[in-house]
Design a protein around this nucleic acid. Structure first.
Lengths: 144, 144
DNA sequence: ATCATTGCAAAAGCTTTGCATAAGA
DNA sequence: TCTTATGCAAAGCTTTTGCAATGAT
């Protein structure tokens, strides 16, 4: 069994919830996309594959996946939520082009030290961070 | 005249737009708050002061303020937009408590170098970045 | 006199929720 | 059997937009 499914089943059992084919299909699809997604795109992916799941079920499943650390919200400033798998993926940040919407990923290991410093300085238990950088890509910068 | 008002008037003139008391009141209020805000809070602030402005005008004014570099969007993962003044303020990031919602500001000058590196590496013209760190504050970490 | 801007109310998106039905445990 | 989960449709929220009236230049 894929490890992300295992993680979810453990979480489900521990919380006294139920294992359903819908949740498993949604999770499977998310980890096949292997990149960021939004609810509508995920829903369409599933429908095109012939998987019958309602958006309501997706909206109800995502908080569970977040809660057990499989995915996280990401902010692309587009007025609706985006998400991405984090389980089994290295932590990365996003560089977004304000012209064409292209999104590049990059790693920034120095932020781990920043987290530790903030923890010490303010007594926080740090759970994570998000960094987005915006600008114009090589193409779009010529047209502004 | 306050410098942020001056910046906005210059922008207005340059774009052939019109100077209105509504926009000026909204901008004035934003720079009196001197911290992050959302549309509803800003609207209530103005109403309580007896300033008659509609939310529609606020929604229509904010993109202008963003466009001329006076404010920026900030993401607190709360399902609606937050904003903060940036003109005349030093750039900072946010540390947010997942328990009580407290928000601390901190500076992270190293990210300037990261921006330059990304610009070189990917040919981007960088316009800015946002960093949020989440965790539990000294109080809330005891109750989770 | 023009034409941008306003306020209102309606519409549009995305997300959440109530409820009857289905189905895990 | 008991309770959670699903699908549908309705409701909720935030944000956007159409339109007639207003007002800046």
């Amino acid at each position: 069994m894929k490890p992300e499914i295992q993680v979810f089943q453990d979480y489900i059992r521990q919380r006294g919830l139920r294992r359903t084919p819908e949740r498993e299909q949604i999770l499977k699809q998310i980890f096949e996309i292997h990149g960021h997604f939004d609810v509508d795109g995920l829903y369409l992916n599933l429908r095109h594959k012939g998987v019958r799941v309602s958006k309501a079920s997706i909206y109800r499943a995502l908080p569970l996946f977040i809660d057990c650390g499989l995915i996280r919200e990401v902010d692309f400033s587009e007025g609706h939520w985006h998400y991405e798998p984090i389980y089994g993926h290295t932590h990365h940040s996003h560089l977004r082009c304000l012209g064409c919407g292209e999104i590049l990923e990059f790693e920034e290991p120095a932020l781990k030290r920043l987290e530790e410093q903030l923890a010490r300085q303010h007594g926080y238990l740090i759970k994570g961070h998000q960094l987005q950088v915006q600008g114009y890509c090589a193409n779009c910068r010529q047209t502004i």
